[in-house]
Amino acid sequence: MKILLVEDDATTIEYVVKGFAEQGHNIETASDGHQGLLLATSMQYDLIILDRMLPQLDGLKVLAAVRATGCQTPVLILSALSHVDERVKGLRAGGDDYMTKPFAFSELLVRAEKLMHRGQSQPAKTELAVGNLVMELLTRKVTLDGNEILLQPKEFQLLKYLMEHPNQVISRTLLFEAVWDYHFDPRTNVIDVHIAKLRRKFEELGFGELIETVRGAGYRLRQGN
């Protein structure tokens, strides 16, 4: 996948470029608004990651200009402005997602991949499988090693999100957004509690290690063997 990163901070550029390169993505960078606009409108990308505060041309103006040319490439706004109204402003201007700095690369990756795959019409999956964990989406039946597990709706949604991103570290914020339709940092253990319940159900079947806690980052669903 080809990604354009418009960002002026060298440390962030290095961090993001290294991360995406390791994942096998092709990433190009622009360090100011003009250059970013030029590249975004002249080349074809699968995703544009755009900083808000850019030299020469503000990120939102770049976004508006890009959208004005009819370009529909997904845009992820990356910004140090964290307030809810800034987020709303960014999304209104035509952004597809919004992340505040500082951020964990793992979360950026999940969000970026979600946006890049959005346009591709994949055949609707009816089943998710990670190792011996299988989720039937239509009947909402979950089996682990052949044994059925009864899940509550929120647990089901959480597990589904984790199964869609196996072996990836998923932040609490991402999980929170996936399950509840609210955008705020709950700053509480609500996600941990639900994960703990899920984990207990797995434990009963002897698979307590399936969901791994990554300290300081989030959770990861391990690919069973």
């Binding site: 929120k154 609210y182 709950p186 509480t188 319940k197």
Partner: peptide, 13 residues
């Protein structure tokens, strides 16, 4: 209702 749903598991714990 949303409040209840979100907090339920926490209380349960």
């Amino acid at each position: 209702q949303d409040l209840y749903e979100m907090a339920e598991a926490m209380a349960e714990l």
